Amino acid sequence: MAVDIDKFVAYLGKQAFRGGHGKGKCGEYVRKALQAGGAHFNEFKPPHYGKEYGLTLERLGFHEITVNDPDHFPFIRGDVMVMQPHKGGKQAGHVAGYDGKYWISDFYQRDFWAGPDYRNQKPRAKYAVYRY
């Protein structure tokens, strides 16, 4: 099934909270944005937690790309990051889409890292980026 990246990022941007932190609903917001882009979850159930989105993205036609340094990588519109929990963090992890300027989940992130604990720890082995 095709995913319209423009519709995906447009929906994500319209729904996300600007100016602050998310509400722990990154998986829900990204799922709804993927659906707005044409993704169907008829044959499998979408994951609940952000950290579980890798296989779902692959089933939708995304593929994992190598990103050694997310602070200096040329991401493109429609890239999706999946992050495992940081040390001491909640079990849910994180998922967000890139609109060409911002990483967005249920909120607009200031950078790739979904908050100060991720930013301080920069868990390199704990994230993956997917491209359509």
Score class of each variant (00 low, 15 high):
8 F>V: 07
9 V>L: 09
9 V>K: 06
11 Y>P: 01
11 Y>D: 12
11 Y>E: 10
14 K>C: 06
14 K>A: 15
16 A>T: 07
16 A>E: 14
16 A>H: 13
18 R>F: 03
18 R>P: 03
18 R>H: 13
20 G>M: 04
27 G>H: 04
28 E>Q: 13
28 E>H: 10
28 E>S: 09
29 Y>T: 10
30 V>P: 06
31 R>L: 15
32 K>D: 15
37 G>N: 01
39 A>M: 09
41 F>P: 01
41 F>H: 05
42 N>W: 09
44 F>A: 04
45 K>N: 14
47 P>L: 02
48 H>S: 09
49 Y>R: 03
54 G>Y: 04
54 G>F: 09
55 L>F: 12
57 L>W: 00
58 E>L: 12
58 E>S: 09
61 G>N: 03
65 I>V: 15
65 I>S: 11
66 T>V: 11
68 N>R: 03
68 N>P: 00
69 D>P: 10
70 P>Q: 09
71 D>F: 08
73 F>N: 05
74 P>N: 07
75 F>L: 13
77 R>F: 00
78 G>W: 08
79 D>A: 13
80 V>H: 05
81 M>G: 12
81 M>F: 09
83 M>Y: 00
86 H>Y: 15
87 K>L: 14
89 G>S: 14
92 A>N: 07
93 G>T: 09
94 H>Y: 08
94 H>P: 06
97 G>H: 02
98 Y>V: 10
100 G>W: 04
101 K>Y: 04
101 K>W: 00
102 Y>W: 14
103 W>V: 07
104 I>V: 13
105 S>L: 08
107 F>K: 11
109 Q>A: 14
109 Q>R: 13
109 Q>C: 10
110 R>I: 10
112 F>D: 01
112 F>W: 01
113 W>S: 07
116 P>R: 08
116 P>H: 07
118 Y>H: 00
118 Y>Q: 00
119 R>C: 01
123 P>G: 10
123 P>Q: 05
125 A>F: 06
